[in-house]
Amino acid sequence: MEELSHAEERLDVDAYAKRSPFYPLDPRVKLFCTVALIVVVAVLTSLEAVLLAGAFLILLAIASRIPARHLASNFLLALIFVVFAALTMLLYRGWESALIIGLRISICVLALLIMVSTTPFFKMLRAMRSLRVPKLIASMIMFTYRFIFLLLDEMERMKLARRARGFTGGRNLLDRSALRTLANTIGMTFVRANARATNIYDALLMRGYTGEIREFGRLHVGPKDVVFGACFATVIVLTILLETGVLPWML
């Protein structure tokens, strides 16, 4: 595999997929299990149940062999939302609620990160389609991913052009001239990206694209998928039992 720069590594969702032992698993199983776990975690109110789900995901992250640095750098992108939600709860409901909401969001983000990092992007889109996700949604996700790189390329070119013509970023955060330049840059980035997007869509049409994601090989649920699904099911059942207070009663 070619060497990846840190920035590329973070944006390339397929960077580690093929190295992971979870790579050969049926993407539908991974997607279904992840969504099921997220739905359950999203409604948990018991700290014990949240910690159980969190511990399971940490073990899953270790088993996935995705570098911790990759997971951490992507997790940082979501950290602001975690902190914002936790602070809000801290102000209105106290520290325990803040901790629970922070952990819940973190667990959901980590679950998604493990799934997307261990599943090639187009396999995941295919899994979404086979689980009846509308064609339009799958296409929008595909285009969004492709256009992130285009937007970044365009912004990088415009940043260089600004610098080449003496723009240094303004004297302070409220420098109106600098803000106007940045606003124009953002506007122009979208105009250019739109033109580029039209070309890409035309190129896709020329190559027979109809909105369907096609790949060779039939998706097949095997014994490893069953074990993977059973692990998720066990954790989900245990968290529900903990949440409802049934597990301590049983013990």
Partner: peptide, 28 residues
């Protein structure tokens, strides 16, 4: 008809060269 765009970045879409070259016939 096959149309080759001036900027190949408009045309190349898939994550690997093999997948990109195979994109058209797979869609057919």
């Amino acid at each position: 008809v096959g149309l080759m765009f001036q900027d190949p970045d408009d045309q190349i879409f898939m994550p690997s060269v093999w997948e990109d070259v195979a994109f058209g016939p797979m869609n057919f």
